[in-house]
Simulated assay, not measured.
Amino acid sequence: MFTPWPRRLRRLTLGVAGLAALAVLAAEPSSSELPAGYGGISPAAVQTKYAGLAQAIPQTGEMAVFPGPAGEPVEDCAAIAGGRTMVALVFGQSNASNTVDPGYDSGQPVYASFGGTCQKAHDALPGATGSKGSSWPRLGDRAVVSGLYDSVIFADIARGGSSILQWGPGGELNPLLLSTLDDLVARGLMPTHVLFHQGEADCALGVASEDYAVMLGAVIDQIRARVAASCDIVIARASLYLDPVCANRGEPACYRSCPGLTAVQTKAADPARRVFSGPNTDLLVPWFDRNDGYHFTARAADRFAAAWMPLLARGDGPTQTLQ
């Protein structure tokens, strides 16, 4: 499904993680919409460099956006928000969407925001691709039980197989990211957190570290311009994937990672701008804790959720004492 560069990725298929579902929007955005370049490289130049390399994300089947259970009771998000409420926009690729072993149901006041309303958070979260399980209700329960927050609202727009090229300026998912942020703010749901987990697709695609840095920096700038100064932007580290050419998920040698990309994700942290490093799932979730070679088992999702907690409890949130 990839074009012949690099050669060893010729045999990638749509597959379990949707790594082949990568695209770059052909149309160039106006210069006024593009943040400044990094290291002398502009987002537009990066988009041009990788244009036409792969197919767009399918909008049917497992890759479709999960609409939520039929008949799910809905609530007014604005009535939930306020005071000690965590409002988190989540985006990235499949491990930020609904690909976990399913079966988790939040036991605390944790909600999913989708289509202008909120519903109780459980597997799977509406608004993201996939229809299995999610790590985020687990994090929400921990945040409430710990005493950090009284309630949590997640707006999850993660897309399986998505690339930083798609989320960045000029990419097909960039309007979704920006419009979701604008919509949350307009509805009185100013995010307290923006959580990003992505990188496996770009490792497989062969995106150069410096190009990933350009796009990630541009995305952070766009977010920072739209959210309150108190909103934390947290960039997880992720690049590990099962090489489809090898394809044996029980063989550790078949897994690939890109330390250069995780180094860029780490370097993106800037506490002065409230940009922080999130969990490194290349290390946190080893190959044997991925249910199909790519996606987290329930046990790994629990560990992933726990790893975010120190970032929520840094000491300057709504309460500084964990129960």
Results as ranks from 00 to 15, higher is better:
residue 211 D to A: 05
residue 50 Y to G: 00
residue 59 Q to G: 14
residue 64 A to M: 11
residue 179 S to P: 07
residue 136 W to Y: 14
residue 141 D to A: 08
residue 106 S to R: 10
residue 22 L to G: 13
residue 299 R to S: 12
residue 303 R to E: 12
residue 123 D to C: 11
residue 155 A to D: 09
residue 190 M to K: 09
residue 99 T to F: 09
residue 46 V to T: 03
residue 59 Q to W: 07
residue 60 T to F: 12
residue 124 A to I: 04
residue 117 T to V: 15
residue 141 D to V: 02
residue 163 S to Y: 09
residue 268 A to M: 13
residue 20 A to S: 14
residue 72 E to H: 08
residue 265 Q to C: 08
residue 224 R to V: 03
residue 60 T to N: 08
residue 267 K to G: 14
residue 296 F to W: 14
residue 85 T to A: 15
residue 264 V to C: 05
residue 178 L to M: 15
residue 216 L to S: 06
residue 96 A to Q: 06
residue 155 A to I: 00
residue 295 H to D: 06
residue 142 R to A: 07
residue 35 P to V: 08
residue 299 R to H: 08
residue 132 K to C: 05
residue 80 I to L: 15
residue 23 A to D: 14
residue 288 F to E: 05
residue 92 G to R: 03
residue 44 A to D: 12
residue 140 G to Q: 01
residue 309 M to S: 05
residue 147 G to V: 03
residue 110 V to N: 08
residue 193 H to Q: 11
residue 208 A to Y: 03
residue 267 K to T: 06
residue 184 L to Y: 08
residue 123 D to N: 11
residue 305 A to D: 10
residue 263 A to S: 15
residue 213 A to Q: 13
residue 210 E to H: 14
residue 53 L to I: 05
residue 144 V to G: 09
residue 167 W to Y: 10
residue 218 A to I: 02
residue 13 T to S: 11
residue 166 Q to K: 07
residue 121 A to H: 11
residue 136 W to C: 10
residue 142 R to S: 02
residue 69 P to C: 06
residue 62 E to K: 06
residue 131 S to H: 05
residue 14 L to H: 06
residue 15 G to A: 15
residue 38 Y to D: 09
residue 3 T to M: 12
residue 214 V to A: 11
residue 184 L to A: 08
residue 221 D to V: 10
residue 103 G to T: 01
residue 211 D to H: 14
residue 172 E to S: 15
residue 54 A to F: 12
residue 22 L to W: 07
residue 278 G to S: 11
residue 83 G to H: 02
residue 164 I to Q: 02
residue 323 Q to P: 14
residue 301 A to G: 07
